[in-house]
Design a protein around this nucleic acid. Structure first.
Lengths: 235, 235
DNA sequence: GCGCACTACGTACGGTGTACGTAACTAGGA
DNA sequence: TCCTAGTTACGTACACCGTACGTAGTGCGC
């Protein structure tokens, strides 16, 4: 009988290797790497149990010995890409340290554009997520604040990173699964937007778009948002 | 021949009633209401073309006359619930006005817990979304800032609302589709978390959880985050 | 060495989005 | 007024999904 759970389970609490039986052909790292490879090249929606199994070279249902539910596969993927963080010794300037950490996170999400979609507070306690949290807390060691306040700050930084990167990659990621190009999509959407604006029903939007037609500096927007959040915690 | 698009299309640019042919049996509002009803009672994942069609009392494929792709159905849903906003005359205190707007948005998302999952910058230009943006801009009429700065502020407020409400409802929404209760799920996850913390690998997390075991005041967390963001734009 | 827990995996079920073909209907142009 | 082209309506079908279940083989702990 295959040991699928009838009760909630955290995959990290399940031992990777059980005592009995044949030795598993794959490690969790193998499985996560295969899934990440698919997500990176074909998009998150292409990550199916069948495709991951095929990528590993095993039968679909064999995967369920390692990963009881697809959701757990997602958790493996998040943990795997979170293993790439570097945690340098905190400098003493906690704002600079958190900015650096946020930039690492942003870069990681640009490498793995499916990460923001999977980010959820339901996950967030995988081994590498705990390492991340512990490091962020260590950056705040000298700060005179209660634990709850520090966690609020860290959560807010993470929220900003996730939100902004999600925005940055949204249309690009979307167009991946569509039969037309990002440019076509954007053209149609801005055409429609213009058609709405010229109706005169949205005068402030109209004035704004007339006044400010330059391209958006995404890096600047991100850095401003981030530093605003950090400033608001400054004391 | 059914008129499905081979080229990108914005549903709002498509006229609701075409000249020729039998008069449509449903309006977009009917369809959106049916989908919203299903999402509210059974969760977003229960919103399938088949179920919405059944709720309307028509064949599955008939729905595709109104809604070329499922994605457009989502857009209809978002616009429908965005129609419930009230836009009182701006008071002159733009911070208070934006706080009130954010509270309206938060309340709406708590009524329709699937909204944060659908929120994406790809949507965001439906009729009611444009009304929302125009109103938010009107709250900033007296503020001396460029259009781009105002939009950055509004985007940041929206981001905070979406992020925080998503967190607030995540575990509750999740447990809806699972065969066990939210309490069981939480118990298992905190059990695991404790097992990790007692290993001593995460001393700051350990100290924090030991120091501060009280329940989290979600309203307080939200209001603090929001006011921090607004303060950071104050001048 | 025995038994049992484990791995492996084929089959099957119920669900999904939606392409396609056909029939009925109605408004615009002749 | 009639014709016809564009629409609505919808049944069928396809490819794909997550995964329950059953069976066969494997190797560790006793």
């Amino acid at each position: 009988m295959v040991g699928r759970p009838a009760v909630p389970e955290v995959i990290w609490a399940r031992p990777e290797r059980a005592g009995r039986g044949p030795r598993p052909a794959f490690s969790r790292a193998d499985i996560a790497a295969a899934a990440v490879r698919i997500a990176d090249t074909e998009g998150l929606d292409a990550v199916s149990m069948r495709k991951v199994a095929a990528e590993l070279g095993c039968g679909t249902m064999s995967l369920y010995n390692y990963v009881p539910r697809k959701e757990d596969l997602h958790e493996l993927m998040l943990d795997a890409v979170s293993g790439g963080y570097e945690f340098p010794e905190p400098s003493g300037d906690w704002r600079a340290d958190l900015v650096a950490l946020a930039h690492q996170a942003r870069a990681m999400m640009h490498r793995h554009t499916w990460v923001p979609r999977l980010m959820s507070p339901v996950y967030g306690f995988s081994p590498n997520a705990l390492r991340y949290l512990e490091y962020a807390l260590s950056c705040l060691d000298g700060v005179d604040a209660r634990f709850g306040e520090k966690m609020e700050l860290i959560a807010m930084v993470n929220g900003v990173v996730t939100t902004y990167v999600a925005n940055e990659i949204a249309t690009a990621e979307r167009s991946r699964s569509l039969p037309w190009s990002e440019e076509q999509e954007n053209a149609v959407r801005t055409d429609y937007l213009i058609s709405q604006i010229v109706t005169g029903k949205y005068p402030r939007m109209a004035a704004g778009f007339a006044e400010d037609p330059g391209p958006i500096d995404l890096d600047g927007v991100f850095d401003r948002a981030l530093s605003r959040v950090l400033e608001s915690f400054d004391r």
